[in-house]
């Protein structure tokens, strides 16, 4: 535990010193929330809806940090630490080299939860958001989406041969998901044809899940998203466990 605590403290400091996760996981979702709040305010999500546009978007916004950490942060740090030989160095200490991966995952979870708390407080205080669903369901779903996104990141970081390729793959996954899965641009404002296309993105499914949980909508329509997310998680975890390269 001493090793884990110290590593978490040091790696956390290093991550904050790098600034990029602070910008992408903490500031960016907040900025998008404020913009949507100002643009759509308390307007109803659609005619006759009993929740507001912002309430409908909350689930989606909360995944921006998960996406940034899981698909961008995690693969980059893993491939960077591999190419620097840091992962290898831990093989000749009493600590399991997997510990540093656990530490990194913990850091990105902390970013995601901080962002969630910040978004929730801002939305409730400044934009009068009401949370209509069940907190337990939402948190469970949030954790589920996180595990699923992080498994993608682990896979990319684990098998990319070098930092450059890892960063290219991360960008290819991150930017489309950020823009088209509904995390920043609301799914509801997209044309129907585009919606059919973006439905293949795993985060789109995750966001549907969180939207339903935050609005208290019936869980019955959520079978497809749940199956998609489970499949992705199992697949990516299996690939990273089998092909993970320490050096």
């Amino acid at each position: 535990m001493k090793a884990f605590r110290t590593m978490l403290k040091t790696e956390g400091k290093l991550s904050l010193r790098g600034m990029d996760m602070f910008l992408f996981a903490i500031c960016m979702p907040l900025v998008v929330l404020v913009i949507l709040g100002i643009l759509y305010g308390n307007r109803s999500a659609f005619e006759g809806a009993d929740y507001t546009f912002l309430e409908q978007s909350f689930g989606a916004l909360s995944t921006i940090a998960v996406c940034a950490g899981g698909v961008m942060g995690l693969p980059l740090v893993i491939s960077d630490y591999r190419s620097k030989g840091i992962l290898k160095r831990y093989q000749v200490t009493p600590v399991n080299p997997a510990m540093i991966l656990v530490v990194q995952v913990t850091i990105y979870m902390l970013y995601a939860f901080s962002s969630l708390v910040l978004l929730y407080t801002t939305a409730v205080i400044f934009f009068g958001m009401q949370f209509r669903g069940s907190y337990a369901c939402f948190l469970g779903g949030y954790l589920f989406v996180m595990i699923s996104m992080f498994s993608i990141g682990m896979m990319v970081g684990g098998i990319a041969p070098n930092t450059k390729i890892a960063s290219i793959i991360a960008s290819i996954l991150y930017f489309p998901m950020l823009i088209f899965s509904g995390a920043t641009i609301p799914y509801e404002v997209m044309p129907v044809t585009l919606r059919t296309v973006v439905d293949i993105l795993p985060l789109t499914q995750g966001i549907k899940l969180l939207k339903a949980a935050s609005l208290g909508l019936p869980i019955s329509g959520m079978i497809v998203p749940i199956i998609v997310m489970i499949t992705i998680t199992v697949m990516c975890s299996a690939i990273s466990l089998k092909y993970f390269k320490w050096e």
Binding site: T6, T10, R17, G18, K84, I86, R89
Partner: peptide, 17 residues
């Protein structure tokens, strides 16, 4: 092998832990 931006004290503390 050390992390970008890590200081001497941080590196030593982490190794010692």
């Amino acid at each position: 092998n050390y992390q970008d931006n890590i200081t001497v004290a941080e590196l030593c503390e982490t190794v010692a832990s």
